[in-house]
Amino acid sequence: NLFVALYDFVASGDNTLSITKGEKLRVLGYNHNGEWCEAQTKNGQGWVPSNYITPVN
Score class of each variant (00 low, 15 high):
T20A: 10
F9W: 09
F3P: 00
W47C: 08
W36V: 05
G22E: 02
N15L: 08
T54N: 13
G13D: 14
V56L: 08
R26S: 13
D14V: 10
G46I: 09
L6M: 10
G13T: 12
T41Y: 07
I19V: 07
F9T: 03
H32C: 15
S18P: 10
N57H: 04
L28F: 03
E35A: 07
K42L: 08
L25H: 01
S12A: 14
K24D: 06
Y52Q: 05
T54Q: 15
S12K: 09
A39R: 01
G13S: 12
W36Q: 06
Y7G: 12
L2A: 02
L25I: 08
K21Q: 13
G46L: 05
Q40P: 00
Y30T: 11
L25M: 10
H32D: 14
Q40E: 07
S12R: 11
V27E: 00
N33I: 04
G22A: 05
V10F: 13
W36N: 04
Q40F: 09
K21R: 08
V56M: 15
V10H: 15
L25N: 01
R26Y: 07
Y30R: 14
V4P: 00
L25G: 09
W47T: 02
E38W: 03
S18I: 12
Y52K: 09
A5Q: 00
Q40T: 12
N15V: 08
N51Y: 06
I19W: 00
V10L: 08
T41H: 11
V10A: 11
R26K: 15
D14F: 05
L6P: 00
I19S: 00
T16V: 15
T41C: 11
P49E: 02
N51L: 07
G29A: 10
I53H: 01
Y30D: 07
D14A: 10
T54K: 14
Y52H: 07
K21I: 00
E23R: 01
D8T: 11
P49W: 02
N31L: 08
R26E: 14
K21M: 07
T54R: 13
N51H: 09
V10C: 08
V10I: 12
N51W: 06
G44M: 05
Q45V: 09
G13F: 08
K42M: 08
I53R: 00
N15F: 06
V10E: 12
E35L: 09
T54C: 13
L25D: 01
E38I: 05
Q45I: 03
W47K: 03
K24C: 02
L17T: 08
V48P: 00
R26A: 14
T20L: 13
A5S: 13
S50D: 04
E38K: 14
G44R: 07
E35G: 09
Y30W: 09
G44V: 03
N15R: 12
F3L: 01
G46V: 06
T20F: 04
K42Q: 12
W36K: 02
Y52D: 02
T41L: 03
H32Q: 15
Y52F: 14
H32Y: 13
K24M: 13
A11P: 07
V10K: 13
D8L: 00
L28I: 08
H32K: 15
K42H: 05
N57P: 13
P49S: 01
G13A: 12
E35K: 12
D14Q: 11
K42E: 15
V56E: 14
N31R: 13
K24Q: 02
F3M: 04
L28M: 15
T20S: 09
V27T: 04
S12H: 03
V27Q: 01
R26C: 07
V4N: 04
H32R: 14
G13R: 11
A39S: 05
P55K: 10
K24H: 07
A11R: 09
W47R: 08
Y52E: 01
T54M: 12
S50A: 13
P49K: 10
N51D: 08
P49M: 04
G46E: 01
G46K: 01
C37Y: 11
G44Q: 14
